[in-house]
């Protein structure tokens, strides 16, 4: 992408380093490799969902139902486990269910042209409601889940747990998907200029549909990981998490107006929130400050975006074309 974005990612990376450095001056334990690995592991779900949300936002949509999809798929995964379904089936099924839930969002946006924010606000409530219906409002807890179901995300190989490796794999896949496939390119084209995209033979609605399906499938994956990691499934898991996910995207430079964003930015945005969330209890600051800090970070990120856009200006002078 453009140089401005690259420098923007560097800036965010620097901010995270600075933050970690600052914490390290008073709490050296925080920067121990094992603790940093813990922070990463704790942020893995946010990273995966931020990338999923990013492709949706790139196409000028938004998926507010992402956390509800996560919760529904997590509940279904837990119920399948209780019913004795093998793990090799549960995870693909959770992702397939997520993809279907995403497809519902996508079809409503594509075929009925309903604004995405309205669609996903509606399905967000519906999906939570379905969890209540299928679970009868009851929790599925630790004792009911099979040992393998719970331990899979925690299994370590090559120094990191499976949960972290999932995030790494998703980042790698997205780097290729977004940067190196025609679908990835059409996400940018559709969000950047939908009219122009139509003229180049891109089906705008179908591209948005694809983004919602990807988002749903990943929410399904995280649904299993989440329920297994915390060893509990109930109606309200990950309640409000969709806002953290959108926040990670915005901090990472993904433009809500569509067409602008990068994998690196979204990952760094998620890490930034992850570091703050994990550091504040260490420093002994109330978790309420966390909200204020992430709120400030969002506004700062948008302010940086706005000034970048403004400083460019129009190139009117012929001689300035080469300079630009």
């Amino acid at each position: 992408m453009s140089r401005a974005l690259k420098s923007r990612e560097a800036l965010l990376g620097l901010a995270i380093m600075l933050l970690i450095g600052l914490i390290a001056t008073r709490f050296p334990d925080f920067v121990a490799p094992s603790n940093l690995a813990n922070v990463f592991n704790d942020t893995a779900a946010l990273i995966i969902l931020a990338l999923a949300q990013m492709v949706v936002i790139l196409t000028k949509c938004i998926d507010l139902s992402i956390a509800a999809t996560l919760a529904l798929c997590g509940m279904v995964a837990a119920m399948l486990d209780v019913a004795g379904v093998p793990m090799a089936v549960i995870v693909p099924l959770a992702m397939a269910l997520g993809a279907c839930l995403g497809a519902v969002n996508g079809l409503l946006v594509w075929k009925l042209q309903i604004p995405p924010i309205v669609v996903t606000l509606g399905t967000m409530t519906i999906y939570r409601g379905i969890i209540f219906l299928i679970s009868g409002g009851k929790w599925i807890n630790d004792q009911e889940m099979s040992p393998l179901f719970k331990s899979l995300p925690r299994m370590e190989f090559l120094w990191l747990p499976v949960l972290s490796w999932c995030a790494v794999a998703v980042v790698a896949i997205f780097a290729v998907l977004v940067g190196r496939t025609p679908l990835g390119r059409s996400f940018f084209a559709v969000g950047g200029n939908a009219h122009a995209a139509v003229y180049t033979g891109i089906n705008v609605g179908r591209t948005q549909f694809a983004a919602f399906v990807i988002s749903g499938a990943l929410a399904g994956l995280v649904g299993y990981l989440w329920v297994a990691r915390y060893a509990v499934a109930y109606v309200d898991i990950a309640n409000g998490f969709e806002l953290d996910v959108v926040a990670a995207c915005v901090i990472g430079g993904v433009s809500i107006a569509g067409g602008v964003g990068s994998v690196g930015g979204a990952v760094l945005g998620a890490l930034f929130l992850g570091v703050i969330k994990n550091a504040l209890p260490v420093i002994g600051i109330s978790p309420f400050w966390q909200m204020a800090i992430s709120g400030t970070a969002i506004i700062l990120a948008i302010a940086v975006n706005a000034t970048e856009g403004r400083s460019r200006g129009r190139v009117i002078l012929k001689s300035a074309e080469h300079v630009a």
């Binding site: 496939t181 940018f188 950047g192 200029n193 009219h195 122009a196 891109i202 067409g259």
Partner: peptide, 30 residues
């Protein structure tokens, strides 16, 4: 409105309708 996709670099604008020809096995070749 209908022509260039601002925000995308020049080369990506040019290849937008020809992505089938610039990719192999579904992956774009820069």
């Amino acid at each position: 409105r209908q022509g260039a996709v601002k925000g995308l670099p020049i080369y990506q604008n040019v290849t937008l309708p020809s992505l089938g020809r610039t990719s192999r096995h579904g992956f774009l070749r820069l």
